[in-house]
């Protein structure tokens, strides 16, 4: 029993990272009805930028800030150059285009920084915490990750419910025509949505890198986990993405604990398949996954 609790707690940090990446996917989906499969590629790229900044300045915080700025910029560039022109086309075109971006970003990162996995500095203590005379499977770094995640979710909730920009973004997501007729600058709002998603993805990248290392392909698996969480959460729902993301992390941690971490992708696939078969609109969503 204690072992189960340990396994569950051990998944909290990675769960938050999955939640953040799922959140990024949901933000672009809400903005433009595109699942940005290049999101992890963007996060990988900005994490490499952060690593370079880290080497240059020696400051983890400067590197983080750089990654967030770069995340916004890359998000805007991808949306502006690729998805905006493709908007009028079939959905297949948009999906394929995001994979094209993913392939190009990974290759570009390989060219610049090489293909080998590199270590990302660990800014906080990553050893198990001892509280009440017992070792817990959570480190100070896990708490930092969770803290960042919680702060971000609170910030986004305030943005969406309390500000005009947030209202404009929600209106644009649900009914772009009415938003335009109300005077919302829709294309600018969509671009801001992508920038926001880029920032959230970049944060997830920098937070996961000390644990996973960073290489051009090192976030691919995160894409699968995050997509699974986003879809089960309903793709439209910020709350859904976050809670299911964390839940996915906990489940995968338990699975890895009792068997082997290489089973995690298979388990994620089973979760995704079950969800799409039984409740395709997700737990928190209202838009339909099914076409026919």
């Amino acid at each position: 029993m204690t072992q189960l609790i340990d396994y569950i707690l051990g998944g909290a940090g990675s769960g938050m990272i999955i939640a953040l990446m799922a959140l990024a996917l949901v933000l672009t989906w809400r903005a433009t009805r595109v699942v940005n499969f290049a999101q992890v590629g963007q996060a990988m790229f900005t994490t490499f930028i952060a690593l370079s900044l880290q080497t240059l300045t020696g400051s983890w915080w400067v590197a983080l800030l750089g990654a967030l700025v770069a995340g916004a910029v890359v998000g805007v560039v991808v949306q502006y150059l690729v998805l905006r022109p493709v908007k009028r086309m079939d959905t297949s075109g948009a999906i394929i285009a995001t994979f094209g971006v993913l392939i190009a970003l990974q290759a570009a990162a390989g060219m610049i920084w090489g293909g080998d996995s590199q270590a990302y500095p660990q800014p906080f203590n990553n050893t198990a915490l001892t509280v009440f005379g017992r070792e817990w499977p959570i480190s100070a770094y896990d708490l930092v990750v969770i803290g960042f995640g919680v702060a971000l979710v609170i910030g986004l909730t305030l943005l969406f419910t309390r500000t005009n920009l947030g209202l404009a973004m929600r209106a644009t997501a649900f009914n772009p025509e009415v938003a335009r007729l109300s005077g919302v600058r829709v294309s600018r709002t969509l671009t801001i949505g992508w920038a926001l998603a880029g920032i959230v993805g970049a944060l997830a990248g920098v937070l996961v890198a000390p644990v996973s290392g960073i290489s051009p392909n090192s976030f691919d698996i995160l894409l699968v986990f995050a997509f699974t969480a986003a879809v089960i959460g309903g793709l439209d729902s910020l709350i859904g993405a976050v809670s299911v993301g964390i839940g996915t992390g906990l489940i995968l941690s338990v699975v890895s604990g009792y068997s082997d971490s290489s089973n995690a992708p298979v388990v994620a696939l089973i979760l995704l398949a079950l969800n799409l078969a039984l409740k395709p609109e997700g737990i928190f969503g209202h838009n339909s996954a099914r076409s026919v």
Binding site: L167, R170, A171, N175, V178
Partner: peptide, 13 residues
């Protein structure tokens, strides 16, 4: 209208 928003939010829009 934007069905997913409240009456107040629709007007604020």
């Amino acid at each position: 209208t934007v069905p997913e928003l409240t009456v107040d939010e629709n007007l604020r829009l």
